[in-house]
Design a protein around this nucleic acid. Sequence first.
DNA 1: GTGAAAGCGCTAACAT
DNA 2: ATGTTAGCGCTTTCAC
Lengths: 337, 337
Amino acid sequence: MTSIDDVAQASGVSIATVSRALRGLPNVSEPTRQRIRGIADQLGYVASSNASGLATGRTLTMGVVAPSVSRWFYTTVIEGIDSVLRHANYDMILYNLASRGGDRERVFHRSILRKRTDALIALCLDFTADERDQLLSIGHPMIMIGGPVRGIRHIGIDERGVARSATEYLIGLGHRHIAHLGGDDDEGLNRQVPLERRRGFLDALRDAGIESHDDWMLTGRFSLTASRDVVNELLDRPGPRPTAIFANSDEMAIGAMLAALDHGLSIPGDLSIMGIDNHDLSESFGLTTMAQDPFEQGALGARILLDDLNGGPLKRKTSVRAPAQLLERTSTAPPRS
Amino acid sequence: MTSIDDVAQASGVSIATVSRALRGLPNVSEPTRQRIRGIADQLGYVASSNASGLATGRTLTMGVVAPSVSRWFYTTVIEGIDSVLRHANYDMILYNLASRGGDRERVFHRSILRKRTDALIALCLDFTADERDQLLSIGHPMIMIGGPVRGIRHIGIDERGVARSATEYLIGLGHRHIAHLGGDDDEGLNRQVPLERRRGFLDALRDAGIESHDDWMLTGRFSLTASRDVVNELLDRPGPRPTAIFANSDEMAIGAMLAALDHGLSIPGDLSIMGIDNHDLSESFGLTTMAQDPFEQGALGARILLDDLNGGPLKRKTSVRAPAQLLERTSTAPPRS
DNA sequence: GTGAAAGCGCTAACAT
DNA sequence: ATGTTAGCGCTTTCAC
C-alpha cells in the first residue's frame, strides 16, 4: 500500500511538503504542488484515514443510529444525510439497531464509543435514560431526527400540530365519525411520535365537539400489512362504521385503503382516508396526506453537525421544526350525506 | 478523552498489560485482568480505532456499496450483513451510490480507497470496467451480492433458472398468454439481472412451444408504481389480454395486481400474477412468488469476508448460488377455460 | 517554500 | 506475568 513516503521519494521532497501539497495548504509553490499531485495520482496514493485521524483527532466519519433501515422514513433520511456527507468528504457508519438479533447494547457500549465518529445522528428512537447518557457523554455533536428526546436537540415536524391539522381537514369536509390508525412501532420508533399524533387527533375532535370513539383507536404499528389487517377487522364489525380514517403514516393509510378495497368499499365515496408523510407510493394511490420531507431533514441534520464540527458561525443549539403541509389528493371527500 | 495511559496509571500497570487484558490475550493473571477491566469501564475507556488500526493494519470496518438504500432487496441484504458484522464487532460504512446528486466517482476514488475498510461488499450494481478495476486494485477481500460481474465472485440466485421455473409454473397451470414485467432499474441495478430473467422467461416459452409476444414485454423498472402504470396501459389496449403476468420482482408484481384491481379484474380469475422475491408485502397480497432470502445472502457474504480476513480454512474463492423456491399463494391459478 | 522531528494512541516483539 | 520500546502513517510545530 503506497504511503506518503513513497510519494515523497518519488517527488524528491519531504513528506511534510507532500502532506501540505495534497491538502491544499499554503506554503507550497504551485509547480511543486502540481508535480506532487500528479505523482500521487499516478501512484494511486490516498492518505490513511487512521494515520491522519490519529494525528488530527478527526475521523471524517459520521455515525447514524437508526432503529431500522427498512422503513421509508428512515431510508429517506439516510439518503439525505448521505448526500450531504459525501459532498463534505465524510463517510457514514450505520448502526442499525433493529436488525434481527441486533443487540442494542453492543452498539452503545462498544462501537459508537469506539471513537470512530466525529458526530452522531440518531433517527427517531426511544432511548433508555442510560443509553442517552452514554451518547451524550461522548461529547460529540449530536442531533436527533424525528421524535424528540429530552436533552437532545432535534429536527422534526410538529407531530401534534400536524395530526391536529389533518384531523381538522377531515372535520372540515364534514366528517364526524373518524377512526384513528396509530400505535407504536415494533422497531423502536420514538414512542413520543405516535403519542403526540394521537393527542393532536384528539385535540381536533374535542375542539369540534366530537366525542372520540375508543373502538376506533386502532393499532397499525406503522406497518402496511398490520394496518390492512386491523382495518379489515374494523370493517368486519357490525354497527356503524367511521366515514373517515386518519392514519399516522402513509404506509398505514395505504394499508387502510387496501382493506377498504378488500371490503368492496369505494374511496373516498364510502370512506375517506388520509395519512402523514407523502410516501413514494402515495401519489399512485391518490392518497391525501400531510407531506413532510425526510430527505431534507436528514440533509439539514448533517449540515448542522458539519457546521458544529467546523466551528462555523451557524451553530444551532436549538431544535428545528421541519415543515409539513396538506397535500390534497383523491382519497378524501365529504362523507356521503 | 481517556486513553490507555490513563487506565494504566490508574491500575498501576503498564499500557502493554492494559492492552492485553482488555483484548483478552493470554499472559495476564485473572485478578489483574478483572481489575483492569473494572477500571477501564469506570473510566469509560474504549480504544481508539485509529490508533489500533494504525498499529494492526486492521480497521474493523467493512464497506458496503449499494446502488440505493430504498429498495426492499438492498435494505434486507444490508440488515443481514449488519447482523453478522455486529457480532464480529465490525462496523459498516455505507456507500450509497444512488442518493440524489450522489456522484459515484467520488465514492470510488476517494472514500473507498481511503483505506478505511478491511473488505468490501457490493450490492448488485453495474460497474464500469474502470470502477471494477479500482475496486479490485485495493486488494481487499470483496464479494458481490446480487447480479454477477465478471471477475468478481458473487452470491446470488440462478437468475435465469429462477425466471424459467416461474414461467414454467405458469405454463404448467395452463397459461399460454403470458406477459413479462421486466426492464432495467433506474437506480443502477446490475443490468445482467433483468436480462437473465428475461432470458429465463423466453427459455420457458420456447421450450413449451409458445411464441413470445413483443407487446407483452413490459418495462416496470423494478418499481411498484411504474409497474402499475405500465400494466394499466397494457390492460387498456384493445385486443386479447394475457392470462398471466410474470414479474421480475414482487414489488412489480404487486404493481400489476393493483393495476388489475384498477381495471376491476379479479386475481387469479381473470389474471394470474407472480413475481420473484417474497417481499414483506407479498404474503398480505397472496402473491405467488419465487422466494429468495436476501437477509441470508447478506449474512453469508459478510461471513465469507470475515473468514477471508481471518485466514480461516473456509475461504471460498468461488461464487455461491443462493436458493430460491416456488411459494404458491393465491395470485395464480389455471386460466379460465 | 521546504525540511526535521516530535507526537497522535495504540500493538507487538522482545526483555525481564 | 509484566514492562520497554519501536514502529504504524500521518500532521504540525519549529527551524531554516
